[in-house]
């Protein structure tokens, strides 16, 4: 029954509700149209959907925000597929990195356009056209210039420093968001739980590390954990007292103290599972690999599923 439903859905699904940066549709700047392309996902090593803006100057990530049992009314029409797609700017370096790591094993300096090549995903060479790609290679590779030609070799040390900065940026954003959530909210029914000041630094670091780990291989993610001097959690679930969990579902975004969830084995295994179902419903537009966004805002989503 369920499979039958899915099939009808994918057959008829030809319309999408999307939230995208203004720049994507700013036709003034454009000489060509943006396009959805499939590229190798650095975490899963499989196809995911991305967008390249006009002239390939900007890479975008495509994420699906999805809850069960939702549909859209768009103008005077009904759209069965209730997903909301988010298109957000993405750092192309995350996608370039796996290619450099692979070629780095040979230990030679190489021209990057010979490294970022993929028979399965020919669009990957377009990543090098993105505005900051070439300039930011120095964050993940050593550079050599010979007769005006540039050669690169992967550097684990530089990459770790770069990723650490990414984590720090993310921690700052989480803190900022946390504050704005704690104050300006229009919450009407919930009595605001006294704000909990002691989200400690490690919680933030772990959460941010979890977010960044969506864009790097599992090996690199473990290396980064060590680089951040965070011990690996062997069984994160047991470290969470159940009472704490319950409280989370009552609190708004400050529920962020559940940061460890992102590092649990459960979290790592979950996205691919979701992807398969996304793959089914989205087969028509090749939106394979988009992950539901709700996993980023796990407290409520988790609570609802129970």
């Amino acid at each position: 029954m369920a499979t039958k439903k899915k099939r009808t859905l994918s057959a008829q699904n030809d319309s999408w509700v999307v939230i995208a940066p203004d720049s994507v549709v700013d036709t003034q700047k454009h000489d060509s149209d943006p396009s959805f392309v499939r590229l190798r996902n650095p975490l899963t090593d499989e196809a995911s959907l991305y967008m390249l803006g006009s002239g390939d100057v900007q890479l975008f990530e495509v994420k699906a925000f999805e809850e069960d049992f939702h549909s859209w009314f768009v103008g005077q029409t009904v759209q069965r597929d209730g997903r909301l797609l988010f298109i957000t700017p993405m750092d192309p370096l995350y996608l370039i990195l796996p290619y450099l790591i692979k070629s780095g094993k040979e230990g030679k300096f190489q021209p990057v356009d010979q490294v970022v090549m993929d028979e399965e995903f020919p669009a990957c060479s377009r990543l090098l056209s993105c505005t900051h790609s070439l300039a930011s290679l120095r964050h993940i590779a050593e550079e050599k210039e010979v007769a005006n030609l540039k050669f690169h070799r992967y550097s684990q040390e530089k990459t770790m420093d770069w990723l650490k900065k990414k984590v720090e940026r993310t921690v700052a954003a989480l803190k900022k968001r946390h504050i704005s959530v704690g104050e300006g909210v229009k919450s009407s029914t919930y009595v605001r739980v006294k704000s909990e000041p002691d989200h400690n630094e490690e919680d933030y670091l772990r959460y941010a590390h979890g977010l960044i780990s969506e864009y790097i291989s599992e090996d690199l993610s473990k290396d980064l954990l060590r680089h951040l001097k965070l011990p690996e959690l062997t069984s994160p679930k047991e470290t969470e007292p159940p009472s704490k969990k319950r409280k989370l579902s009552d609190t708004p975004v400050e529920a962020g103290e559940d940061y460890t969830k992102f590092n649990s084995a459960d979290f790592v295994r979950k996205p691919p599972k979701k992807m398969t179902s996304a793959q089914k419903t989205l087969a028509k537009v090749d939106k394979t690999g988009m992950k539901p966004m709700s996993s980023f805002f796990s407290p409520k989503a988790k609570a609802e599923k129970k």
Partner: peptide, 23 residues
């Protein structure tokens, strides 16, 4: 409520900017 998932989803672009902005 402000913790409805779709409300929280609107925070994603800001978080994405932190993850993807140039260092």
């Amino acid at each position: 409520n402000s913790d409805d998932t779709v409300v929280m989803a609107m925070d994603w672009p800001e978080l994405a900017e932190a993850i993807h902005g140039p260092v």
